[in-house]
Structures are given as C-alpha cells and as structure tokens.
Design a protein around this nucleic acid. Structure first.
Length: 265
DNA sequence: AAGTTCTTCAACCGCCATATG
DNA sequence: ACATATGGCGGTTGAAGAACT
C-alpha cells in the first residue's frame, strides 16, 4: 500500500473547501488504484494524518469516552473532538468492540444507586488505599478533603473544583428518582480537567429551547448545579446568565436537566 | 497442523448539509 | 433559485489476524 501511495500523484482539491484544515491537506488521487478522492480523504483523516495518536486508548480516554457517550450518544465526531489525536472512526470501533460490552457488564441497576449514602459510609470506614471508586461515582458526595487528596483513581481533580455536596442540593426529604441519581453521577463525575474537553456548544444541546431553558433557569425551575469553572467561565450560558443564577439551587430538578440532555442523545 | 470461530478496525455506503458555479 | 460537487457523519461490512478446538 505504501508503494502505491508513493506512486500516487498529488494535487490540490479542485476547489477550496470551507474547512481550513481540509484545505491545507492535499487530497491524493490515485490513478493506478480504484481510489476516488473520497476514499483518499477518508484514508487521510483516519490513518495518514500526522496528528493521529497511535497506541492503545488509555484508561483516562476510555473513561472519558464512556462519559461522553452517555451524555451525547453515538455522536462520534463530537466525542472524538474531545480526544485529541483520536478519530471518530477509531472511537466508534473501540466503542462497538470493547466499551459497549464493558459498560453493559458493569452497569449498575438504577435501584442500587439510591444506596449511595450507605455505600459512602462504608467506603469511608475502609482504608483509603483500599478504596476503589465504582464507575460513575459521584464526586460531589466526597468531602472536600477527599477531593484535594485526589485519591479518586487516576483523575486529576482540579484544585479549584468545588465539592458541591449533594446533600446541599437534594435533602434527604427530596425524592430524587433513581434515574436522577444516575444522571447526577454522570455529570458530577466530570472533573474540571475533563470538562476542558467538554466545550461543545451548549446551544446545540439545548436546541431551539434554549431561551425557554434560560428562563426556566432564572425561575429556578431548571436548576443548574455545576460550578462556575464548568459553564459560566466557558461562556456556555451567555445572554446575561451569571454564576449566581446558574448556581441557583433553590429547587433541584434533575429530571428537567435529564430531559434536555436525553432529548439530544 | 488444520479447521473454525472470534475480534479488530480500515474501508465502504448512504444520507444529509454545505459550498460552488 | 437551482444543479452539482464535495464534505461530514454514523452504520455497516469484510478482510486479516488471533484465539480456540
């Protein structure tokens, strides 16, 4: 194959594309092979591009893929955009061959998630070195001391990350549905370092309903529970929505949040 | 060693969006 | 405004190698 590519002649795309990256990369046409420009483009994007990261997908990348997939669904290009050097095709293949099975195997029945308080107490009674965080553990349920000690697997918890205690948001008397805990675990599981990769357009997620969602947010119907490092500083909520409004914890409504996330996935 | 099954992943396909003439 | 070319994307396929019998 390599020799074939050496014998290929290269030319510029017949016309400029709107994508600067694409335009900067010459499209290779192979006269001796049955390769159209499209095939060559794919070959370039998925294999030949110099910035492709080789080697196995790391544990951190794997974890991020799982989280992003749960958030975004099969939007491989979006997911790949958060993993520098990885292609959507690679991630798609990795998901279909490896991660899908892993996730299915380790998925915890939702009803068990209600027992987080009990689990947490039990974990705290054990030595920290023995603690193995379960998948999608909610770091917000950890104390600030635990966060700063950064014992949560390999994740690097940003020192500015706030440990928003779920008890502050959802008192025992509230009736969080199991699926809400599940979503909470997913979202709160992102640390700041991971979220620097999560700069996908929030507008896209919210779609045409963004204005209504912002109004709901102002009215306290839709309660945002992320710290300012996540959304506000990244300008995801513009139009005058500030940190204090984002962090309106008056009435926790994870169901609403789940709805608009799930509606896009 | 040979045949079969399983796994991986590059490549293909079809659809839709966008750019261009 | 329209037709055509191209890009982008997700689903699927099939060849090749690994693992198993």
């Amino acid at each position: 194959m390599t020799s074939c590519f050496f014998s290929a002649y290269m030319c510029k795309s017949p016309r400029p594309t709107y994508n600067q990256l694409e335009y900067s990369a010459p499209i290779i046409y192979l006269s001796s092979l049955n390769r159209c420009g499209r095939s060559c483009r794919l070959r370039w994007l998925n294999y030949l591009r110099p910035d492709i990261k080789r080697g196995n997908i790391s544990h951190e990348e794997e974890d991020l893929i799982i989280r992003l997939h749960k958030l975004l669904g099969n939007r491989w290009s979006l997911i790949a955009g958060r993993l520098p050097g990885r292609t959507d095709n690679e991630i798609k293949n990795y998901w279909n061959t490896v991660l899908k099975k892993k996730v299915q195997a380790r998925s915890v029945p939702l009803t068990n998630l209600k027992c987080l308080n009990h689990d947490e107490k039990e974990r705290k009674s054990k030595s920290k070195t023995e603690v193995q965080a379960p998948p999608f553990e909610n770091p917000a349920r950890r104390s600030e001391a635990e966060l700063s000690s950064n014992h949560y697997g390999n994740q690097n918890v940003h020192k500015n990350e706030k440990a928003i205690m779920i008890d502050d948001l959802a008192p025992e008397s509230s009736s969080l549905a199991p699926q809400d805990y599940d979503l909470w675990n997913l979202l709160a599981g992102f640390n700041t370092d991971s979220l620097c990769l999560l700069d996908f357009e929030f507008v896209e997620l919210l779609g045409d309903n963004i204005q209504q969602d912002i109004e709901d947010c102002n009215n306290g119907k839709l309660c945002a529970f992320f710290d300012e490092n996540i959304f506000c500083s990244r300008g995801m909520f513009e139009n005058g929505i500030g940190t204090d409004q984002i962090q309106s914890y008056g009435s926790l409504d994870l169901g609403s949040l789940a709805t608009f996330f799930e509606s896009e996935s």
